[in-house]
């Protein structure tokens, strides 16, 4: 099993992607120390300056240093991405395993609700929840989590249906192991490889969702340096000062691409077993 995962790091692409992700994580962790300016400090006399030695990535329409905003923004983006994916995956695993394991009426109820949620595009769902609950960091996290839960429920249920028919589950049952222990010790560990790949892919998707919400002006509210919000406000100056959207756009692009490449590779490794 472990050997399978070391295969992941043999690929050059994966190494590069991992480096990108780790550098963003590093930026997020030490934002206070490495960012050259306060990301919230405005100086209208320096608005929309192009990149220079003083401001490596230039300044935005309010004269704030874009590099500092990107660095602090990585903290927000990664927080949303990790927390939302963790919550969404946890809820998805919980309902998915219960649904697949018990079947019957429980399964029917959970699956019908999942189908209703799946009928709406995930992003629309996220917009809907933010609209209902108002927009701040936590509602963004929760709405992104909710929007990814249904697909997790579906996937985990399918995997559970496969595993619960295996002999070792029957063997545990016939020795009197209770349902909760069977789910935790026997089913979840055996479906986890696929879940891990899916989680990695969802880390990327959740960044897209969160910055998408920001772009539409219903994400983490300004003046927080959220990448999507930066893109949204910078859009107005796209011809006059394109550097306003290039940096946040590139950051989103790099991070999402890295998560997706790693997720895909993980999926391939799991499928090739």
């Amino acid at each position: 099993m472990m050997q399978q995962y070391t295969r992941l790091f043999k690929s050059k692409r994966v190494k590069i992607c991992l480096f990108i992700i780790l550098s963003f994580i590093f930026m997020a962790l030490f934002a206070d120390f490495i960012s050259p300016y306060n990301p919230l400090e405005t100086d209208l006399s320096k608005s929309c300056r192009p990149p220079s030695f003083e401001h490596l990535l230039g300044t935005d329409e309010l004269g704030r240093d874009i590099l500092s905003r990107i660095i602090h923004g990585s903290r927000l983006t990664l927080t949303i991405s990790f927390v939302a994916t963790a919550l969404g995956a946890a809820a998805g695993i919980f309902f998915g395993v219960i649904s697949g394991y018990f079947g019957g009426i429980v399964d029917t109820i959970i699956q019908r609700i999942t189908e209703i949620l799946l009928a709406l595009p995930g992003f629309l769902l996220a917009i809907m929840f933010v609209a209902i609950m108002g927009s701040n960091l936590w509602t963004v996290i929760i709405s992104v989590a909710i929007s990814m839960t249904p697909s997790f429920v579906r996937m985990v249920r399918g995997l559970t249906l496969q595993v619960r028919e295996l002999e070792y589950v029957l063997a545990a049952k016939q020795l009197g192991v209770n349902d909760i222990k069977i789910m935790f010790n026997h089913i979840i560990p055996n479906v986890s490889p696929t879940i891990i790949a899916q989680v990695t892919l969802n880390l990327g998707t959740s960044i897209l969702f969160a910055s998408g919400l920001g772009f539409l002006g219903i994400g983490v509210p300004p003046p927080a340096p959220e990448w999507g919000t930066m893109l949204g406000t910078g859009r107005a100056y796209i011809f006059y000062a394109p550097h306003l959207i290039i940096s946040p756009g590139l950051s989103v692009f790099l991070l999402v691409l890295s998560f997706n490449i790693i997720g895909d590779r993980l999926g391939e490794i799991i499928a090739s077993k």
Partner: peptide
């Protein structure tokens, strides 16, 4: 197939 592949033999026995 009657043993859980991702659980140590000892843990499976102890679970009983």
């Amino acid at each position: 197939s009657a043993l859980n592949p991702v659980m140590k033999v000892g843990d499976q026995l102890m679970e009983v």
